[in-house]
């Protein structure tokens, strides 16, 4: 068959395919009809054959480009991954996320150390050396914290409550979750940024806490009863996002048995899943911090709720999604 005859014979199929591709790409997948998909697949295979024929006979780069575009379009249309469903997302949050986190416990432990050591140091410095605390954290920062915790945040019938708390909720989502996602993303640069975010946040939060505790009396009670509930989700999530960043850094620095590029791809998705889980936790923390923590109720109730929150977070992350011990068959095949 020569080139002219080939084009004449195949042209109808090509334009039909082009049309079909345009129609299908223009509408959502669930509206595709089975007949259309079958037709597309049939035409796609025949055009694949056409392309390899043109390639092997070198029948002109323009013709090859045209068929190449058709094959690329068809490939993009036919081979795709199934979209994530809401159920799978929920299932991931409830069981998949804690399981993944326990698999990555080493990164979690390192991240926790990077956050907790400066946090504890900061608290000690805040209590024992107020002068040093002011030097590190800045006078304005500590002054502002002291003022806001030295009196009750709201009275029982405060009209400002709804507006102010919604404003703060938006701020917490944007600020805290943003910091967590940054801690994750900066892991891609060998983890230097991640370490910085963990260390600096640890020391700052510790200093504020130490200073408040040193004031004693109402200030200390107001502060601890305010932070205890949402802290369970917030502090844990910051550590988890740090762990996600450290996983990225590890995949870059220590590829082990993989090539470096393979290592990046292998760890990229899992660390992202960790970071997104932390994002969900921080959204919950912002809700608590916005609307529950400042409620004008007895500190005792807040301490009780806070302890419960820490317990639940611990149980969830520690135990949810455990796999039943498998006694035999490591290959995972089912007995007949």
């Amino acid at each position: 068959m020569n080139r002219e005859r080939f084009i004449r014979a195949r042209r109808a199929d090509w334009s039909h395919f082009e049309q079909l591709l345009g129609t299908l790409q223009g509408q959502p997948e669930r509206q595709w009809r089975a007949v259309q998909v079958a037709e597309l697949a049939r035409l796609y295979r025949s055009i694949c054959y056409d392309l390899s024929l043109v390639q092997s006979r070198e029948w002109g780069s323009r013709l090859e480009d045209y068929l190449n575009d058709l094959v690329a379009g068809g490939h993009n249309c036919l081979y795709r991954t199934s979209p994530a469903s809401l159920t799978s997302v929920l299932k991931y949050i409830v069981t998949g996320f804690p399981r993944l986190l326990r698999q990555r416990w080493r990164a979690f432990a390192l991240s926790a150390a990077l956050f907790l050591v400066p946090f504890i140091l900061g608290t000690i410095v805040g209590v024992t050396r107020p002068d040093l605390a002011v030097l590190v954290a800045g006078e304005a920062e500590l002054q502002q914290a002291t003022e806001s915790y030295s009196q009750e945040l709201y009275t029982a019938t405060d009209e400002r409550y709804t507006g102010e708390r919604s404003f703060m909720f938006g701020f917490y989502v944007n600020n805290n979750t943003g910091i967590a996602f940054q801690a994750f993303a900066l892991g891609a640069l060998a983890g230097i940024g991640t370490c910085y975010v963990l260390l600096s946040n640890g020391i700052l939060i510790g200093l504020v806490q130490g200073t408040m505790l040193a004031k004693g009396g109402t200030t200390a009670v107001n502060f601890t009863s305010f932070v205890i509930t949402h802290g369970s989700l917030e502090l844990t999530a910051i550590v988890i996002s740090g762990a996600a960043g450290l996983v990225l850094a590890q995949s870059l620095l220590l590829p082990r048995e993989r090539t470096r590029m393979e290592s990046l791809r292998h760890h990229g998705r899992e660390s992202l899943q960790l970071a997104l889980g932390a994002g969900v936790m921080l959204f919950g923390a912002a809700l608590l911090e916005g609307y529950f923590s400042p409620l004008p109720i007895a500190p005792g109730i807040k301490y009780a709720a806070g302890s419960l929150a820490w317990l639940l977070v611990g149980l969830w992350l520690g135990l949810a999604g455990r796999e039943r011990p498998v006694l035999s068959d490591p290959a995972g095949g089912k007995p007949a």
């Binding site: 690329a72 993009n76 081979y79 994530a84 993303a185 992202l272 899943q273």
Partner: peptide, 28 residues
């Protein structure tokens, strides 16, 4: 332009999220 996996197949939501999150590092 279009973002594709390197094997030519379309990307999913998780992949899209990941590559866009890392803009923070790329932009430095």
């Amino acid at each position: 332009l279009r973002v594709l996996r390197t094997n030519g197949t379309p990307i999913d939501l998780l992949t899209a999220t990941g590559r866009n999150f890392l803009r923070v590092a790329d932009a430095l």
